[in-house]
Simulated scan of single mutants.
Amino acid sequence: MTYRILVDENTSPRVAELLRGKGHEAAHVSEALEVGATDQEIVTYASERGYSVLTHDDDFLLSEYTRTVPVLYYSDDTLDTYEIADRVSMVIQYIPDPDDLPPVTNLSTWVD
Score class of each variant (00 low, 15 high):
112 D>H: 15
100 D>V: 03
67 R>K: 12
17 E>M: 09
1 M>H: 08
57 D>N: 13
14 R>I: 02
90 M>L: 14
27 A>G: 07
72 L>R: 00
14 R>E: 03
4 R>S: 04
12 S>N: 08
6 L>N: 01
3 Y>E: 07
38 T>R: 14
22 K>W: 10
51 Y>G: 06
8 D>S: 06
12 S>F: 02
4 R>A: 06
26 A>L: 01
86 D>M: 06
109 T>Q: 07
12 S>Y: 09
1 M>G: 09
88 V>D: 01
8 D>M: 04
83 E>R: 03
66 T>M: 03
97 D>I: 00
47 S>W: 08
41 E>V: 05
83 E>S: 05
60 F>P: 00
108 S>Y: 15
74 Y>K: 07
30 S>G: 12
3 Y>Q: 04
23 G>D: 06
5 I>Q: 06
4 R>T: 04
22 K>I: 05
27 A>I: 06
76 D>A: 07
71 V>L: 14
104 V>K: 07
38 T>H: 13
85 A>S: 07
27 A>T: 10
48 E>N: 15
80 D>A: 04
98 P>G: 04
23 G>H: 02
15 V>I: 11
96 P>K: 13
23 G>A: 03
38 T>Y: 06
32 A>Y: 13
102 P>A: 11
104 V>P: 09
63 S>D: 14
81 T>K: 08
95 I>C: 07
104 V>N: 11
2 T>W: 03
97 D>H: 09
74 Y>D: 12
105 T>L: 07
80 D>F: 12
36 G>M: 13
104 V>M: 05
52 S>A: 15
56 H>W: 11
106 N>E: 13
72 L>H: 00
24 H>P: 05
36 G>I: 10
18 L>C: 03
38 T>F: 00
73 Y>R: 02
24 H>A: 14
109 T>W: 06
29 V>K: 02
21 G>N: 03
21 G>T: 00
103 P>Y: 13
112 D>V: 15
97 D>W: 02
34 E>S: 10
39 D>G: 05
104 V>D: 09
50 G>Q: 06
67 R>N: 14
